[in-house]
């Protein structure tokens, strides 16, 4: 039994749990975007940050991967945490202006507009990587991955053409936190081939 505090409230956890899992088990809500229960956490969105305080000193860490430890002092909604989340959401608003889910989440934190330049007003993909993780870890098809890097990073199948490794299960569409995978789905799955060496296709 590992005992520590979240928001000044005593909580108990077992070794191997993360701070996020413990918080959720105790009904404490921490927002996430790139986290999904079916796959390993990746820590890409940083939205689940919590503040760890030790005396005068504090740091922010991501709760989805931070292992529980005896005596932690965790704050899930402090000023510092709220500030980090607001920055993230403001940047996401610029990155994915078309996503209703991001707009709603930003509104919850009082972020209505963004000071950053919008490069693609149609973009919805936040590059959380959930689609490719689900495809690899749950489905086992490994059809898609991130392609490129930096500002040119996007999600796609190898060579950005439909691949027959895709089994068209739609798990990527289901786990996508925004509507991004919906529009990309047809570029990945192409047309399912049902040819037993017979027929037109």
């Amino acid at each position: 039994m590992i005992k520590f505090k979240i928001n000044d409230q005593q909580v108990q956890a077992q070794p191997g749990w993360t701070v996020l899992e413990t918080a959720r088990q105790h009904g404490i809500n921490i927002p996430t975007l790139c986290y999904h229960e079916a796959v390993e956490p990746s820590g890409a969105c940083r939205l689940c940050v919590v503040e760890l305080r030790e005396g005068d000193w504090s740091k922010v860490v991501i709760s989805c991967m931070y292992p529980v430890a005896e005596g932690l002092n965790v704050y899930t909604d402090s000023q510092r945490v709220k500030n980090v989340r607001r920055w993230i959401l403001e940047m996401l608003l610029a990155e994915c202006p078309a996503s209703k889910e991001i707009q709603a989440l930003a509104a919850e934190y009082g972020v209505g507009s963004t000071r950053f330049a919008v490069h693609n007003p149609e973009e919805q993909c936040i590059l959380c990587g959930l689609c490719s993780r689900v495809c690899a870890q749950v489905v086992g098809a490994n059809a898609i991955s991130t392609v490129g890097r930096g500002v040119h990073k996007q999600i796609g199948a190898p060579y950005m053409i439909p691949t027959d490794k895709c089994v068209a299960c739609g798990c990527c569409v289901t786990v996508c936190p925004t509507g991004a995978m919906r529009s990309r789905f047809d570029a990945v799955r192409g047309v399912p081939k049902v040819v037993l060496a017979h027929g037109a296709r």
Binding site: A13, Q14, G16, T18, E21, R24, Q25, E37, A38
Partner: peptide, 10 residues
Amino acid sequence: PFACLTPGLS
């Protein structure tokens, strides 16, 4: 609370 997370699974 969450059947699918580590605490829920145990």
